[in-house]
Amino acid sequence: MCLAISVSLVMTSLKSSLTHRRQTQQLLRVEQADWLLEAGLVRAHRQLHEDDAYTGETWSVGDAIRGGDPAEIEIEVTRDDSSKDSLTVHVTARLGQDEPQNPHRIQRSQTWQIASTF
Results as ranks from 00 to 15, higher is better:
114 I>L: 06
50 E>F: 01
67 G>L: 06
102 N>H: 01
59 W>L: 08
83 S>Y: 03
68 G>Q: 05
41 L>Q: 09
56 G>E: 14
114 I>F: 02
73 I>S: 06
46 R>K: 11
115 A>S: 15
113 Q>P: 00
77 V>Y: 07
35 W>P: 01
23 Q>A: 09
32 Q>N: 14
52 D>R: 13
11 M>D: 02
58 T>N: 12
65 I>Y: 04
37 L>W: 04
87 L>I: 01
79 R>T: 15
50 E>C: 00
28 L>C: 01
56 G>R: 08
4 A>C: 01
28 L>K: 13
54 Y>T: 09
53 A>K: 10
13 S>P: 05
10 V>Q: 06
17 S>T: 13
35 W>R: 08
102 N>A: 04
18 L>T: 02
49 H>V: 03
91 V>M: 04
19 T>E: 14
88 T>H: 06
3 L>M: 12
108 R>A: 02
75 I>G: 02
108 R>M: 09
66 R>Y: 10
87 L>N: 09
95 L>K: 03
57 E>M: 03
117 T>M: 15
74 E>Q: 13
95 L>H: 05
1 M>I: 00
64 A>K: 08
93 A>L: 05
111 T>Y: 02
108 R>P: 03
106 I>C: 03
29 R>N: 10
73 I>V: 09
65 I>H: 07
5 I>Q: 07
3 L>C: 06
46 R>M: 09
109 S>R: 15
118 F>K: 11
82 S>T: 15
6 S>P: 00
15 K>A: 11
76 E>R: 11
107 Q>N: 06
6 S>K: 01
103 P>G: 05
88 T>V: 10
24 T>A: 12
17 S>M: 13
6 S>E: 08
89 V>C: 02
63 D>C: 00
102 N>Q: 07
102 N>G: 04
107 Q>K: 10
53 A>P: 00
25 Q>F: 13
105 R>F: 02
57 E>V: 03
115 A>Q: 14
107 Q>I: 11
106 I>M: 03
31 E>W: 05
33 A>N: 06
11 M>L: 15
94 R>V: 09
117 T>C: 10
27 L>C: 03
63 D>I: 01
70 P>L: 05
72 E>G: 02
82 S>H: 04
34 D>I: 01
107 Q>P: 00
28 L>S: 07
69 D>F: 10
29 R>D: 12
115 A>G: 14
108 R>E: 14
102 N>I: 00
82 S>N: 12
69 D>S: 12
50 E>N: 12
1 M>Q: 09
86 S>E: 13
18 L>W: 01
48 L>T: 04
104 H>F: 11
15 K>Q: 14
59 W>K: 11
6 S>F: 14
36 L>P: 05
30 V>Q: 13
5 I>Y: 09
51 D>A: 03
87 L>R: 04
92 T>I: 12
76 E>H: 03
108 R>K: 07
61 V>F: 03
35 W>E: 15
61 V>M: 05
25 Q>M: 14
110 Q>G: 05
21 R>A: 13
102 N>E: 06
58 T>P: 09
67 G>A: 06
9 L>T: 01
7 V>E: 14
28 L>D: 07
36 L>F: 05
93 A>T: 07
90 H>D: 15
94 R>W: 10
16 S>F: 07
104 H>V: 08
61 V>Y: 02
62 G>Q: 05
50 E>R: 09
